[in-house]
């Protein structure tokens, strides 16, 4: 019994310790995204941050973040672009369509079809931060915004502009 109590105390302390460590790293993270340019054929050039154990994983995370922002948050005016509204305008869509989005954003998921990295190699300089447990990188990605919007409209996730008419 005593042994079990000891183990429990160690586990609780360990969780507490690593939890604090994670919070510390989180505070160093750079997150966010900004639009750089609106391209032809419904593409948007975005600069976005990602995090991962290796720079490559961080780039993949950045791509995922770019698509996530395009769908749920939209982009503030910047670069040569005016404000861009999110593709999905309903607040609770992420929760209501949890199964769809879990599958869409899974590792190697369909989201990758709508985003392309415009970086050659791994980012360097100010766009690459070495953290204690990994890398925080900023990459320029091109999002197939209109194609993504059409896909989500077809799936009934996003509302069409002419819906109801």
């Amino acid at each position: 019994m005593k042994k079990l109590t000891k183990i429990l105390v160690i586990v609780v302390l360990a969780v507490g310790f690593f939890g604090c460590a994670t919070t510390k790293i989180d505070s160093v993270y750079k997150t966010g995204s900004e639009i750089l340019k609106v391209g032809n054929e419904g593409t948007k050039l975005i600069k976005v941050w990602g995090y991962g154990k290796t720079p490559d994983i961080a780039i993949t995370d950045a791509k995922r973040n770019a698509v996530d922002v395009a769908i749920f948050k939209g982009f503030s005016a910047g670069g040569d672009s005016d404000k861009i509204f999110p593709i999905v305008s309903e607040d609770n869509s992420r929760i209501e369509n949890k199964v769809f989005f879990d599958d869409f954003f899974k590792v190697g998921g369909k989201y990758l079809q709508y985003v392309n990295s415009k970086n050659y190699g791994v980012p360097s300089g100010k766009d690459r931060l070495k953290l204690k447990y990994g890398y925080n990188v900023a990459v320029s990605v091109s999002i197939e915004f209109d194609t993504l919007r059409k896909y989500l409209e077809e799936k009934g996730i996003a509302r069409r502009l002419d819906e109801g008419f």
């Binding site: 609106v38 672009s81 005016d82 404000k83 509204f85 305008s89 915004f145 502009l161």
Partner: peptide
């Protein structure tokens, strides 16, 4: 550059 915002407001 401006049509996304315009259509967002129209929506």
């Amino acid at each position: 550059s401006h049509m996304d915002k315009f259509n967002g407001m129209l929506m």
